[in-house]
């Protein structure tokens, strides 16, 4: 089922942190449905099925987005703003997964509508616990709304409408 295709989008520029995150999630049976992108622009391309992700299948949004704050090109807060401003993506839970303990980052994230803010601990055991708890919570405990029922008047924003799960892109049939 294509809707169930992707569980987690991990936006992380540090490959070490990405690997450690994947390792922490190894037992949660989500390994095959985690997609890792390394900067904010790529994350937006992935979410909006543009650029190199124009033909991705399944085209639906992930169940949860783990988002680093400090990213090349487009930073985490901009990605968060874009997601939360889009009625199609607004209901996708976004978990900030970052090293920053700065209060202003926490405040800015919550102001933009982040669902959770996790400071990555240096200690691996604590890190592992944090990632696992967050993954478990958002993937298995949290009950999301039925797709498309949030944002009652869906309207594409600035031509970059989120791709809908049910209508495949006209150019996307080739894959």
């Amino acid at each position: 089922m294509s809707v169930e295709g992707l569980d987690i989008l991990l936006v992380e520029d540090d490959s070490n942190d990405a690997d450690l995150t994947l390792y922490a999630l190894r037992d949660e049976k989500v390994m095959n449905s985690v997609h890792v992108v390394s900067d904010g622009a790529e994350a937006l391309d992935f979410l909006y099925c543009t650029g190199s992700y124009a033909d991705r299948r399944p085209a639906g949004p992930p169940k949860v987005i783990l988002l680093d704050l400090k990213l090349p090109k487009v930073d985490g807060l901009e990605v968060l703003k874009s997601i939360k401003d889009d009625p199609k993506l607004r209901s996708v839970p976004v978990v900030m997964l970052t090293s920053s303990q700065e209060e202003r980052d926490v405040l800015a994230s919550y102001r933009l509508g982040v669902n959770s803010y996790i400071v990555k601990p240096v200690d691996f055991k604590q890190f592992e616990d944090a990632i696992r708890s967050a993954g478990m919570y958002w993937l298995f405990l949290n009950r999301p709304p039925v797709r498309n029922s949030v944002g009652s008047a869906p309207r594409p924003t600035s031509g970059e409408a989120a791709c809908r799960a049910e209508d495949a892109s006209p150019h996307g049939g080739g894959l």
Partner: peptide, 13 residues
């Protein structure tokens, strides 16, 4: 706060 902890986490992790 942000950049020094990432490599450290790699070491411990």
């Amino acid at each position: 706060s942000h950049d020094l902890r990432a490599p450290l986490r790699a070491v411990t992790g």
